[in-house]
Design a protein around this nucleic acid. Structure first.
Length: 264
DNA sequence: ATCGGTACCTGCACGC
DNA sequence: TGCGTGCAGGTACCGA
């Protein structure tokens, strides 16, 4: 489900949790704990106060007073929900001094873990897609010999983009998903950087994209899916030229593009 | 060191 | 109605 704009929206809807205390925690699925012991997890969290909540790429970092972090990744179908009933796919239940926070994930591709420090695999990600400078972005592109779509999905290169916003940014830049990254120089690199920042900013302003079931922590849907120009619009007319939008696989992920507007 | 392909898991829409 | 197929916002891991 969630890419940078959705995770940012969730984090904003969780901001009110700063200062709250976790009374107790319950974990029901070992898989989303990345192998950690459920009892140990619960013991690490019980009685702790939440200091702050922030986004790092697609990760959610909940800092605890006195040290330590609750690190959450929503994977494809993860949800953090304030309030509501635990269901079939609820894997974590945090009882707070006021209310409850649930972690729900039907496909179990996400994770929720406690760590004394921010994990290395989180810290080693590339620069944030909303913060990277054009100069750094353009220089990094030149060093990579791979198709641009695959590179934009690589969180070690740039953190935050996923399949929707990679396709949308490439469309805005007029770049074909199979274009070689190292060949995108000058004006093309600038347009791609601009397209990434623009699409992510607009999506955050719209509360993210709700393709099937994405909602923020208060259960609110996003509406940026109304603004998608290529993603899941296969066969529909390009908003710029009217040509039918095409779909192809790039790095095993479906990629949507306008064959006329986007050049290799 | 980098890259592409595959595996992981559940649910849904579709055609027969 | 049920069954098989393909598809879905993600990353980790493997071998080349």
């Amino acid at each position: 489900m969630p890419e940078l704009p959705e995770v940012e929206t969730v984090v904003r809807s969780l901001a009110r949790l700063a200062g709250r205390r976790i009374l107790s925690a319950e974990f029901r699925c070992r898989r989303v704990l990345r192998g950690a012991d459920p009892e140990e997890m619960a013991a690490n969290l019980a009685g702790r106060r939440i200091a702050s909540i922030r986004r790092h790429g697609k990760f959610i970092l909940m800092a605890l007073q006195g040290g330590g972090y609750l690190v959450v990744h929503l994977g494809m179908t993860g949800r953090l929900l304030l309030g509501g009933e635990a269901g079939k796919h609820t894997h974590a239940i945090l009882s707070l001094d006021r209310g409850v926070l649930l972690y729900d994930d039907s496909r179990q591709f996400g994770c929720i873990e406690y760590s004394t420090e921010i994990p290395d695999r989180v810290l080693k990600l590339g620069p944030d897609a909303l913060e990277v400078s054009l100069e750094d972005f353009a220089a990094a592109l030149r060093r990579r010999k791979t198709r641009i779509k695959a590179l934009l999905l690589n969180q070690g290169f740039l953190r935050g983009l996923g399949n929707i916003y990679a396709d949308e940014a490439l469309f805005r830049a007029g770049i074909h998903p199979t274009a070689m990254a190292s060949r995108l120089r000058g004006e093309r690199a600038r347009r791609l950087h601009e397209g990434i920042v623009a699409v992510l900013s607009e999506a955050i302003a719209a509360g993210g994209s709700s393709i099937s079931d994405y909602v923020d922590a208060q259960g609110r849907k996003g509406f940026f899916q109304m603004e998608h120009r290529v993603y899941q619009r296969t066969g529909e007319a390009c908003v710029e030229c009217g040509t039918a939008i095409r779909r192809m696989l790039v790095a095993q992920r479906s990629s949507h593009f306008c064959p006329k507007c986007q050049k290799r």
